[in-house]
Amino acid sequence: MRVLVLCDDYWHPARTPRAGLAPLAAGGFVFEWIENAGEWSAERMAEFPAVLLTKSNDVSASDRTPWMTPDVEAAFAAYVRGGGGLLIVHSGLAGYADTPVLRELLGGVFASHPPQCPVTVAPAPAHPLAAGSAPFTLTDEHYMMDMGDAPGEIFLTTTSEHGTQPAGWARAEGHGRVVALTPGHNLEVWLHPAYQALIANALRWCGRMGDGG
Rank of each mutant, 00 (worst) to 15 (best):
17 P>G: 03
121 V>M: 13
162 H>P: 02
102 L>Q: 02
57 N>Y: 01
95 G>I: 02
165 Q>P: 09
110 F>C: 05
144 M>I: 12
212 G>D: 07
207 G>W: 04
149 D>F: 03
94 A>T: 06
84 G>I: 04
110 F>H: 06
208 R>T: 02
178 V>Y: 04
210 G>Y: 08
38 G>Y: 00
54 T>I: 03
111 A>H: 10
149 D>A: 15
139 T>G: 06
180 A>M: 01
90 H>Q: 11
125 P>Y: 06
22 A>S: 08
154 I>R: 10
8 D>C: 04
72 V>K: 02
23 P>R: 05
20 G>Q: 05
79 Y>H: 12
145 M>R: 02
189 V>W: 12
144 M>Q: 15
181 L>I: 09
15 R>T: 03
197 A>D: 14
14 A>C: 10
154 I>M: 09
57 N>W: 00
182 T>L: 15
170 A>L: 04
192 H>T: 04
145 M>N: 03
190 W>P: 10
26 A>P: 10
185 H>I: 08
95 G>Y: 15
166 P>A: 07
34 I>Q: 08
130 A>E: 02
154 I>K: 05
3 V>S: 14
56 S>K: 00
117 C>D: 07
164 T>C: 15
62 S>H: 07
16 T>D: 12
208 R>V: 02
127 H>R: 09
93 L>K: 08
107 G>T: 11
80 V>A: 13
61 A>S: 09
32 E>F: 05
178 V>P: 03
45 M>E: 09
187 L>Q: 12
55 K>D: 02
96 Y>R: 05
130 A>Y: 02
10 Y>E: 13
213 G>I: 01
141 E>S: 06
40 W>Q: 00
103 R>L: 14
17 P>H: 00
118 P>I: 03
211 D>M: 03
156 L>R: 05
170 A>Y: 14
19 A>M: 10
21 L>C: 09
145 M>Q: 03
109 V>Q: 04
64 R>F: 09
192 H>P: 02
199 I>W: 12
91 S>F: 12
21 L>I: 03
22 A>L: 15
1 M>R: 10
194 A>W: 13
133 S>G: 00
135 P>T: 11
130 A>K: 03
46 A>F: 09
58 D>P: 07
1 M>H: 08
99 T>L: 08
184 G>D: 11
159 T>M: 04
28 G>R: 06
175 H>E: 15
205 W>R: 04
187 L>V: 11
119 V>F: 03
42 A>H: 10
48 F>I: 06
28 G>A: 05
182 T>G: 04
2 R>E: 14
198 L>E: 11
211 D>Y: 01
86 L>S: 01
101 V>P: 12
148 G>S: 05
60 S>H: 07
145 M>V: 06
115 P>I: 06
10 Y>S: 08
72 V>I: 14
139 T>H: 11
25 A>Q: 14
144 M>H: 14
122 A>L: 12
169 W>L: 01
10 Y>T: 12
154 I>A: 09
43 E>K: 11
213 G>P: 01
158 T>C: 11
210 G>A: 13
